[in-house]
């Protein structure tokens, strides 16, 4: 991606803290620092993948960009217009932006109302944004959407529990597409699905992107899937972006020690290669985001940590063109 191009979404120093309930009122209030000073751009037509372990803040990041969670501070600019800016105290009404930005959730059965038919679920978005002039147009549009995601038109009168997981996820995708958005956050869209169904959905997402000129923020913990679908990948650790680069560059030449560990931990479906390769094993577990380590957040587990890492938090710098790393080394 060329950096001169105007980004569709620009995120600057985005923070999201969640207050912890039930702490002693006399003590200082505690916060989970779910997303801590994250900055990046998403360009039109690309897929930006976000990977990281559970609890690293990738889902929170996706939801905060859509302002499903109100950011704690920072800046979000959509197509040149700020939709949130904590310094200038801008927080625009999101309704017009909901037509442009949509989300696909992880668990299809939990994100579809079991008491609404598929037609109602997909049609609700059309109702809210008043995207039709007659009833006939509405039902035509619903049928068109169901067709697009590979469902039959008679499925419109059925309820979500009657469908398999893969089909439910297709309904979730049809709902996101209903308003003809430009940008979709895919929050682990395939991790709840069976292996043979996963590839069907991945291919469909790729086709839809090409047809409708969509931009994706693709969040997942399965790095091989993210690598497959994304143009660029961002790696998150404890709420911070530690590395961001072109997906093939990131996987072949990872720089940050955490990225290297993460990549070496991915099991390969190839017995000879997986027997022969060297694995970097990390000591210990992820520290608590309630009380993150000082300096570089990875220093407690990093084999190369120095005194500087313990004190000073490294910034995300461009190390080679398009390859950003947050590491002192």
């Amino acid at each position: 991606m060329s950096s001169e191009q105007n980004p569709l979404i620009k995120v600057e120093n985005l923070r999201k803290y969640f207050p912890v309930k039930g702490t002693n009122p006399l003590q200082k209030k505690k916060y989970v620092q779910a997303v801590e000073s994250v900055s990046f751009n998403i360009y039109r037509g690309e897929t930006l993948g976000i990977v990281g372990e559970s609890g690293c803040g990738k889902t929170t990041l996706g939801r905060t960009i859509l302002r499903l969670y109100e950011p704690t501070s920072g800046k979000i600019i959509y197509d040149g217009a700020p939709i949130y800016d904590s310094e200038k105290k801008i927080a625009v009404k999101m309704l017009p932006y909901r037509r442009k930005m949509q989300i696909i959730f992880q668990d299809p059965s939990a994100s579809l109302d079991p008491r609404m038919t598929v037609g109602e679920i997909v049609g609700e978005a059309l109702d809210i944004h008043k995207l039709y002039s007659s009833k006939k147009e509405r039902s035509e549009r619903i049928n068109e959407l169901l067709d697009k995601v590979g469902l039959n038109t008679e499925h419109a009168n059925r309820f979500p529990p009657e469908f398999s997981g893969g089909q439910q996820q297709r309904v979730g995708i049809a709902r996101a597409l209903a308003v003809d958005p430009e940008f979709i956050v895919c929050d682990e869209p395939i991790s709840a699905l069976d292996v043979s169904i996963q590839s069907q959905v991945v291919n469909m997402l790729e086709d839809l992107q090409a047809e409708n000129h969509l931009t994706y923020l693709f969040i997942a913990h399965d790095i091989s899937v993210v690598r497959h679908i994304s143009n660029r990948i961002g790696v998150m650790y404890l709420g911070q972006m530690v590395e961001l680069a072109d997906s093939y560059e990131l996987c072949s030449k990872p720089v940050h020690p955490y990225t290297r560990t993460l990549l070496s931990a991915v099991p390969l479906p190839d017995p000879i290669k997986s027997r022969s390769r060297q694995r970097i094993l990390l000591e210990g577990e992820i520290p608590s985001p309630l009380n993150p380590p000082s300096g570089c957040r990875f220093h407690t587990r990093c084999p190369y940590a120095t005194d500087r890492c313990r004190e000073e938090c490294p910034e995300l710098r461009e190390q080679s063109p398009g390859h950003f790393v947050a590491c002192h080394l």
Binding site: S196, S199, V202, S224, R227, H228, V266, L268, D270
Partner: peptide, 14 residues
Amino acid sequence: TPRMDEVTKERLVP
């Protein structure tokens, strides 16, 4: 299954 060691980006065959 997408593979980490694939060299070219190929479409998955579901």
